[in-house]
Design a protein around this nucleic acid. Structure first.
Lengths: 191, 191
DNA sequence: CTCTCCCTACCGACCGGTCGGTAGGGAGAG
DNA sequence: CTCTCCCTACCGACCGGTCGGTAGGGAGAG
């Protein structure tokens, strides 16, 4: 038995039931321990949540930062980052759901810290869009708003994506990038 | 004291703390009753949640359906619907947050019913996009995916929109509609 | 090799408190 | 009197977490 095992089990249950609807007994059951034994490995329920959120945020920051390092035209770079982010979300669906839906249950100080870190993740995207604008490749007078739109559509996938669904993460990311880059208004109408 | 008053207070607290982190004592405090007195007006915590979700869904369905009745070109219709939906979300931010984040806490049968109704709401959007495609105004080979993207960016506004922020709902809706219709790739690059 | 001491990992029992909800009753209005 | 609305006192179940203790194993000394 290890702390890792407990964290993984907790992520699964938190993502399904939510943090507050998950009891320590639930987690204990999932790892075949008695509840009291959990406290040998972790100090509190809140420690579990914080550890999961930190891990999730580290993960997406790392993945997207790597993706942004490719030397490619901005549209391709955007596609690449979106695909990477989506792939990361769906490959780690429990952790992602906790990241995107359960951070509200952090206690005040941790919450503030977490939000600040999350905002830096958003900045990665915003900087990418801004750089594309500066180069004249993207035309967008509110990169912040475009960032929120992008992250909104990506993040919301956690509510509906199923691995056995009809579309792969690559397909979804392509479609979403296509929407953001080209829109779906036909050319004749746009002119 | 009325059931309405209790529901309104509950919506506020649920939206801030989440359903499970909200106690009946919290709600009683908010309406200046003793906890036991709540049960004169409502039968259970779950009844509160269900009532709020039903109300929220009725609200957005009604608003967006109305908006879709305008006789206008598809792009304008889409803009109109997006603005209306966003306006509805932000004008009823507590209820909206409950709708979008707390439905998971419904018990099984109610959850199934709710999801079916929510899917019909999504259908409104999908049908709009599909109609635009059929008329050759929109070019999109996965209207379902476009719908999810659209709803994702709109729904995610509940996590960041603030009434004292720099953008009005009209501005945000315009920007988002612009993104979806035109994309942000500049014309020279697109060709 | 045996023995002692320490550690890790776990347990049963328990803690104080909170949860959603109920039974029974009272006050006030009409 | 009835009815509506509220209350007190309470319930069983459960919550996150603590405490004292044990089993099993390993390291080191003799």
């Amino acid at each position: 038995m290890s702390k890792q095992h407990i964290l993984e089990a907790a992520a699964q249950i938190f993502s399904q039931k939510g943090y507050h609807a998950t009891s320590m007994q639930d987690i204990a059951n999932a790892v075949d321990l008695k509840k009291a034994s959990l406290y040998h490995h972790i100090s509190s329920k809140q420690e579990i949540l914080l550890a999961l959120l930190d891990r999730a945020l580290d993960m997406v920051i790392e993945q997207v930062s790597d993706a942004l390092r490719i030397d490619a035209p901005y549209p391709d770079k955007l596609r690449r980052a979106m695909y990477t982010y989506l792939e990361t979300l769906v490959e780690n669906s429990a952790l992602s759901a906790v990241l995107l839906l359960e951070y509200r249950s952090l206690e005040a100080q941790q919450f503030t810290n977490h939000v600040a870190r999350r905002d830096r993740f958003e900045r990665l995207w915003r900087d990418l869009i801004q750089a594309g604008v500066d180069e004249g490749i993207f035309r967008c007078h509110a990169p912040g708003q475009a960032t929120r739109a992008l992250l909104g559509m990506m993040n919301w996938t956690i509510t509906w994506y199923r691995p056995d669904g009809p579309s792969t993460p690559q397909e979804i990311a392509d479609q979403y990038a296509g929407l953001l880059l080209n829109g779906f208004l036909t050319r004749e109408v746009a002119q």
